[in-house]
Design a protein around this nucleic acid. Structure first.
Lengths: 348, 348
DNA sequence: TGTTAGCACTCATGCAATCCGAGTGCTAAC
DNA sequence: GTTAGCACTCGGATTGCATGAGTGCTAACA
């Protein structure tokens, strides 16, 4: 059987209507509200065909039709129109994201908040994967007799630091020397390879008198590196659960919350996705508990390198057109914010 | 009318039972399950008295009694027993909170997660109020030609930093000089007073040649200070909404989520509370939307100074005894983690 | 005078019966 | 191939009814 012009028209109408109302669409509604050019009875015949072809389903005999995952897929690929973001919304996004302060985590989280506000769905953002980032320098700074701040700066400007209490006191000169030695030894090394270095041994060789300090620092040094390499997942807009008819009963709502809160699993799944704008619909998701949901993700870049993803999760019935446009615009803005100041890929 | 021995016994039984089951308690249940030493009929009479006195209510004629806020208050003040935390739970708390890395925000958030796990309620924690903290030093560190890291360290070891893009490039020497001058000028000043300084003018006076850099840094400098002074509120354990019978219908659950998400309002309300272990029950809360909920907060200290609060929010029916004990133990542990290494209140 | 047994009464809850209407599938006519 | 008409289906809302937990009150008892 063929997807005739008219069948496509009907399918499109059903998908749009269902996305809007979340109610199964009947043949009469369709013939009245949409310009199909055929009577309800004809539409009924067509709908029966479309159901046979796997594009529509039927919650029960006397209900209207609703789209299957296959229908959404067709809709996303070729039926849906391009959503034009209103100028004012664009301005709101841009202005909210630009700032002289490039605190990465904050900005990302902010972007995700924005995304959930705009889409009225639950959104998420992954912190960058820094594996192929390289170390720029290490700083050990005195705070007081027993407290120092250990700070690691990566080439792309990412900074992670922590205050730590040391068992022994050290003079500022030792700390400064330590910073110098550490930086000299490790500058330019990839972050991921740093996890395997033995700083105690390296320091002993380079500057024997810092041995004790190195021993004190080693575990924290590793912990800070780990934190930098760790991919975090921020979730925003959970409250929208309560406005989405699909989650109207508590069982479903809890189900959704459970999934989203399993961050480890989600992170792994999201990391595995391809780059760019990716839409996965219901059963297309490999992860079992996600088979009732759709996910849209896009990739953002830091210094021109794609390093992280952000997106939304929601019921398969979502405004694909609108959402993809918003996400696209959002990532473009992020890329600019995190971009190189003026294209200088320096290596110093 | 007097609160006789027997009335207290009955009241206590009702409160305990209701806290456990969330079901109105009937006279027969009471006479069977608790050792009151009176028949159901007598208990009924007593219950009628207690209701008249305002300790009990009645969802409808043919239902059992449930405690009023007044009853919970009496229960918390004098009826409830002391909950003894099992040794293994204590150990779990201690071990989860101790770590060489004193990353304040992380540890606090962790504590709140722990709290929500243990109480099966929604918990929160406020970041410290740093108003009377003083500045220890300022560091401006080069990352690459156009990027620097601005870092401010407070006397209590709190560190806030941000990477920023500058319009102009600066040599490392200027940055180092800037760090020195800023530190020299502002060391020892209270954080809150820092918000009003004019660093452009001060730098121009101290080191004229850094004028341009000062101008570039000024807005970020202020932003970092603001971030340090800002009191954040972390919320954890929202998922428990779905297991608490009081929130069984969506309306109530959404209501709760709305309240908790209004962080500004919550923060203000929490800041105003007294220090120490504070329990407010239902209508005792001044904030209108909180009048159906109970809040328990306690204060934690950094370097021996009480600076922030943490606690739980939930339905008025909560395990007051257990929760207060857990919170108490938790804050004690935090105080130790954030305490002075060995009582040295140095001023360097 | 306080306590208890007994009984009528109340009311939420659960269940079955019923009605209603939106929507379908099929047939027959155009 | 399209359409009008009609019988049929089935979920959802509504109603009525039985059940039982729990109360308040009265009267008898210690």
């Amino acid at each position: 059987m063929d997807l005739t012009e008219r069948k496509l028209k009907i399918l499109q109408a059903i998908v749009s209507d269902f996305i809007r109302t979340a109610e199964p669409v009947g043949s009469r509604t369709l013939s009245k509200k949409y310009d199909i050019g055929a009577s309800a009875a004809t539409i009924r015949n067509e709908m029966a065909d479309l159901e046979e072809m796997g594009y529509l389903t039927h919650p029960h005999t006397s209900a209207g039709r609703m789209p299957s995952d296959k229908a959404y897929r067709l809709y996303v690929n070729s039926l849906m129109g391009k959503y034009v973001i209103p100028e004012e919304e664009k301005k709101a996004i841009s202005s909210q994201l630009e700032s002289t302060i490039t605190e990465l985590d904050k900005t990302l989280n902010h972007a995700s908040e924005l995304l959930s506000q705009l889409t009225k769905l639950t959104s998420f953002v992954m912190t960058p994967k820094e594996d192929d980032n390289t170390l720029k320098y290490v700083n050990v700074l005195p705070v007081d007799d027993n407290t120092v701040v250990l700070m690691i700066v990566a080439k792309n400007g990412r900074v992670v630091n922590t205050a730590l209490r040391l068992k022994n006191g050290y003079d500022p000169d030792s700390l400064e020397l330590m910073s110098k030695v550490l930086t000299r030894s490790y500058r330019g090394r990839s972050m991921s390879s740093m996890l395997t270095v033995d700083i105690i041994e390296d320091i002993n060789r380079e500057a024997g008198r810092l041995g004790k300090l190195a021993k004190d620092l080693a575990p924290s040094f590793r912990a800070v590196l780990e934190e930098m390499l760790d991919v975090d997942l921020y979730i925003n807009g959970l409250e929208h659960i309560f406005s989405i008819p699909e989650y109207a009963d508590l069982e479903r709502a809890r189900d959704f919350m459970d999934i989203v809160r399993r961050k480890k699993e989600m992170t792994r799944y999201l990391l595995d996705r391809e780059s760019g704008m990716i839409v996965t619909i219901g059963s297309e998701n490999d992860l079992e508990p996600l088979k009732d949901y759709s996910i849209i993700t896009a990739t953002y870049s830091v210094n021109g390198r794609p390093v992280g993803k952000l997106g939304v999760v929601g019921p398969t019935r979502m405004k694909y057109s609108e959402i993809t446009s918003v996400i696209e615009y959002l990532t473009q803005n992020l890329d600019r914010t995190f971009g190189l100041p003026e294209g200088d890929e320096d290596d110093e």
